[in-house]
Amino acid sequence: MKNKVALVTGATSGIGKSTAVILASKGAKVVIAARREEKGQQVVEEIRALGGEAVFLKMDVASEESIRDGIQWIVDQYGRLDLAVNSAGISKTPAPLVDTDTKDLQDAFQTNVIGLFACMKYEVQQMLKTGGGAIVNVSSIAGIRPTNLSNAYSASKFAVEALTKVAAKEMASQNIRINSIAPGPTKSEITEGLGDTMIEKFSQMIPMKRIAESEEIAKGIVFLLSEEASFTTGTTLVMDGGFII
């Protein structure tokens, strides 16, 4: 991955941040794309302190204009885009169908589905110009087997799975590989906000009796981006400690 240009959305924390750090450690030029500039600059400084190369790009995946302009900025700066990780996403407060606001579903789809669709669209446009690339979309086990109270989130992640597979099939002959990763419960700002009791409840539901570290999921993403996965496209890598067995 040395000198490859990599975009990571939602890279200020959790899986996105860990992925950016690992990519930079392998020699990639990493673009940290997120809304929170202060947090983003902290990640950039952390990567540079470790000897890696990174820059911050303010991007809001809920805005197609922000995505389009951001990816164009990357190409203007580096001349290409080789790798992309679409990690930005939101999760709404769990609620049964009858108590779920329509706006919660709309918000989830705006960021998790429409935003991801726009990211892939502009990423692929640039990769086609330079001979190929690799994309990983961060999905969820909720997009494979839905759970109670996750109407908006599960629906959005099922859509991510569909978008990933359709795009992968379309681009397979163009040297662009597109895969998804489906993590189970993972340490992040979102899970920290749930509290210790809920984290322990999740842990007891997982055969490995713990939730994932973000670095563990990031390693799976980096594998899918690498040449070691050169014949892999349109697949979903489940990393859940056995949760959905």
Rank of each mutant, 00 (worst) to 15 (best):
K165F: 12
T19H: 06
V75F: 11
A182I: 07
G40C: 07
I178T: 06
I245Q: 03
S18Q: 14
A95T: 11
Q106W: 09
A6M: 12
A118L: 07
K26L: 15
R36Q: 08
V30N: 02
G14K: 12
S230H: 10
T102P: 00
V31R: 03
R36K: 13
D196F: 03
K29E: 11
F243S: 03
K26F: 14
A28F: 06
A142D: 15
S230F: 10
D60K: 00
A108K: 01
E192T: 11
I199N: 02
S140K: 14
N3S: 15
N137W: 15
R68S: 15
S203T: 03
N112H: 01
R35E: 03
I199P: 01
E45A: 15
M59F: 00
L116I: 12
C119S: 08
S173Q: 11
L116Y: 04
I74L: 01
L163M: 13
A162W: 10
I178Y: 11
I15W: 07
A6F: 13
I206L: 01
A218G: 05
L83C: 08
Q106P: 00
A34L: 04
D82Y: 04
V222G: 04
A142H: 15
Q126T: 10
D101N: 11
I181V: 15
L225H: 05
L225T: 05
D69I: 03
Q125I: 11
P207Q: 05
V55G: 01
F223N: 03
G241P: 01
T191D: 06
T232Q: 09
